[in-house]
Write a protein that binds this DNA or RNA. Sequence first.
DNA 1: GCACTTTGTCTGTTATTGATATACAAATGC
DNA 2: GCATTTGTATATCAATAACAGACAAAGTGC
Lengths: 128, 128
Amino acid sequence: MLRIDLASRVPVYEQIANGLRAELVAGRFGPGDRLPTVRALAIDLGVHHNTVAQAYRQLAEEGWLELKRHRGATVRERHRPSNRPDGPETFARPLRELLAKALAQGLSRQMLIRELMDSVHRLEGGVL
Amino acid sequence: MLRIDLASRVPVYEQIANGLRAELVAGRFGPGDRLPTVRALAIDLGVHHNTVAQAYRQLAEEGWLELKRHRGATVRERHRPSNRPDGPETFARPLRELLAKALAQGLSRQMLIRELMDSVHRLEGGVL
DNA sequence: GCACTTTGTCTGTTATTGATATACAAATGC
DNA sequence: GCATTTGTATATCAATAACAGACAAAGTGC
């Protein structure tokens, strides 16, 4: 299901949140669906349950999940886009830096173009 | 020149390294060019010079810069791609998570597609 | 209804690390 | 030669990520 990289410098709880958010955006979970309990997912990932709980809390703050004490985490009806009107800087710059890093690592332009076009097609299809 | 976001959770020294790397990949600096001294750039950015030094050291390790004690940082002749044969996972996954985050923030698919296509064109033009 | 389990939360504790302060050594410029 | 410039090395402080362990309350089976 999810892959956690303990060596990465992005914190584990955020890796979990990012991964789940990606699946939520992709529509893999519908409203009302239950996510695994914090402990179950924690065991599955090999981390502490508090780490998972922090990820769930973050997603709940973003409006993706409804957290009730013993009912687990249920996916919310609909996610209204956050109200901060972030400009293109929030996306354009990280993208360019990501590309620079990839090029610096020796990945070919061709491969990067292919990946970018893949994403474009997914976006056009409304899948992601 | 560079913009540093102190509120960001990605460390400042890495923001500096990322920004400079992006400019290096873009070819804005030619071989032999001198980068500003650590202190000058530090003052410009409002951070400690050790923070800038750390960024320079990282870029030097990657082969972009030549660091000599009192000669400042000079751009190297050519950057040979790092020898680790990282798969597509190093690019595809971060890209998808970046897109998911952008969508979650309410950025339109249209804008994202535009940005992606921009990058594709830049890549095709060999500019970036 | 009552024990027992399940589940998310709360309160520390520890280790890592990002950023700074400060001193240092060596090269440069006059 | 001497003051200045420049990158580096060491120490310190603060923030925080991850974990440990206990807790309260809702569910579950009888």
